[in-house]
Design a protein around this nucleic acid. Structure first.
Lengths: 138, 138
DNA sequence: TACATAAATGCAATTTTGTTGCAAATAATA
DNA sequence: TATTATTTGCAACAAAATTGCATTTATGTA
């Protein structure tokens, strides 16, 4: 597993550092999406707040993670699939937020449906977030 | 119009104060959704920042306005339609954010489509935000 | 209308969240 | 292993949001 993470970083032309490996590792083992605060807690003290901000920004720029818009407007991040490339995200799947365990889950197989917009509106990207009870909480 | 606003406040068992009337009035005349900062600018100095926070929170709790999840995670608010009740929102329409004028628009007539979720997931609410170019900017 | 009570507001202080510059530490490359 | 480029942590700062409390304002009643 450690090797996979190294490979992923190298593939994206990023140098392999402790912080980056640790944070990526968190994402791979996380049950759902992670907020900045989650990462800060789980790496307590070992990684500086600023480094976390910068690492998340770097990962996002490289198309390794994507942000998820939530209704309470806390920024959450989740791993992108392989077909996400630098500057060109394909996170066109539905996100699910559980009201019970409050996990944010990427439903990779559920694509955001197209909608018919009023005349004159040209869509570029669509986001969809569904809240409810997840499969583990019922 | 001023009377409408008074009525709306009374209907929701809220006392009629200057701040509340002013802020509601802003929403009625706004081209799209409003962020806290927008309200602060447009009421400059006349209403305290804290009062704005508390007013927005009150309005949301009463089901008079709803928050819109945006991809850059700036909190925006928009008026709810009549059928929104306290604690039970029905803002089941699609929101559109223009990349050009950056207005956030409620597409009241475009309903969020249902999606088929994986086994075990029970949906309660769905949100959909489409970004692109709006009808006025093209 | 005037009064008593309850609610809302403004201010100050504080906390949380996010950003920037720079020196020290670390990783990549030859 | 040495050199160079990148990354990190610290400190300072800026912005956004929250809390407690005294003052003000609105509401219902006499």
């Amino acid at each position: 597993m450690g090797e996979n993470i190294r490979e992923l970083l190298k593939k994206n032309h990023l140098s392999v550092t402790d912080s980056r490996v640790q944070i990526l590792d968190l994402f791979y083992h996380a049950p759902g999406a992670l907020a900045h605060a989650d990462i800060e807690k789980k790496t307590s003290d070992k990684i500086d707040r600023v480094t976390i901000y910068r690492t998340l920004q770097t990962f996002e720029e490289k198309g390794m993670i994507h942000t998820i818009p939530t209704s309470d407007n806390s920024v959450k991040y989740a791993l992108c699939k392989d077909h996400c490339a630098e500057g060109h995200h394909h996170d066109n799947h539905v996100h699910f937020i559980c009201n019970h365990c409050s996990k944010t889950i990427c439903l990779d197989d559920v694509l955001v449906p197209e909608v018919k917009l009023p005349k004159g509106f040209a869509p570029l990207q669509s986001n969809m977030v569904v809240t409810g009870i997840c499969n583990e909480c019922r």
